[in-house]
Design a protein around this nucleic acid. Structure first.
Lengths: 135, 135
DNA sequence: ATTGACCTTATAGTAGCTTTATAGTTTAAA
DNA sequence: TTTAAACTATAAAGCTACTATAAGGTCAAT
């Protein structure tokens, strides 16, 4: 299978596949005589794994780490679980921060209406005055 | 006031100040004979405005837009409010996406414990099998 | 023979800085 | 006075995870 087929199968752009290869996330495939990359079922699985990790918000470095665990299957999987726990707490703190931010933005927005001139805009005044209580 | 004092006053690194100047967000200050930048109170306010906008999650482009409104203070401020409304809905959709992600991660994490080997790890199996329901 | 779809590499662009390199200036201590 | 620390300057590269562009080689069909 060539790169275009793999790309379509997994739902990725061809450049992204080459990028993952370059980053060491996808093993370099064999080449045809003309230089075209030839992929196998293992590459399909490897690429799909990477994409699912990305959808879960894992960084390429974290994916690399997970792959290294897969290469050593008789270790205890505490490190895998720890990686996921870290990621979950990271996501949770992002949520918390964004919720605080939303509150701040909504209250800022409430300080103005559309019937004013920029000079008297409550939003701009709110930002400029800097009465922003940090979280 | 020189760049280091401005940086300390607002809580930014000196390179960041030069970066904002280069991006057209902060007006180029006068220079001393030796080439050192000399800042005024207006720069302090300008920089503080930028930082507060950044804390609110606004992009440099959005900040630029706000600045252009400030330069024309007798327009109606509907555009300012619209910018903020857009940003609020952006933040809200981020929150929604992250909450769905958290749910997914937590259920994945629940499929494993620390007493297994990598080979039998529920987390890795969960990612590999790809039974991930998209949002 | 040429068109179109595919493949190749290399390079630059995105956001918002941060880091590094290299060098000149000022200030304070030895 | 010298020298070292702390400050300033510019320019360029690095970060993440791609995406886009350029310039070209390959292949099947018309």
């Amino acid at each position: 299978m060539r790169i275009g087929q793999l790309a379509q199968l997994v739902g990725v752009e061809t450049q992204t596949i080459r990028f993952y290869e370059q980053q060491g996330l996808l093993p370099p495939p064999d080449r045809q005589d003309n230089g075209y990359r030839v992929y196998t079922e293992r590459h399909v699985e490897g690429l799909a794994f990477i994409r699912r990790c990305r959808i879960l918000g894992l960084s390429l470095a974290e994916i690399h780490e997970l792959q290294s665990y897969q290469d050593d299957p008789h270790q205890p999987c505490t490190a895998v679980n720890a990686l996921l726990d870290d990621h979950i707490s990271h996501v949770r703190s992002q949520i918390t921060a964004l919720q605080a931010l939303e509150k701040q933005l909504v209250s800022l927005r409430a300080s103005c209406n559309d019937d004013r001139e920029v000079e008297a805009c409550g939003v701009l005044a709110g930002i400029s005055e800097g009465n922003m209580h940090q979280q």
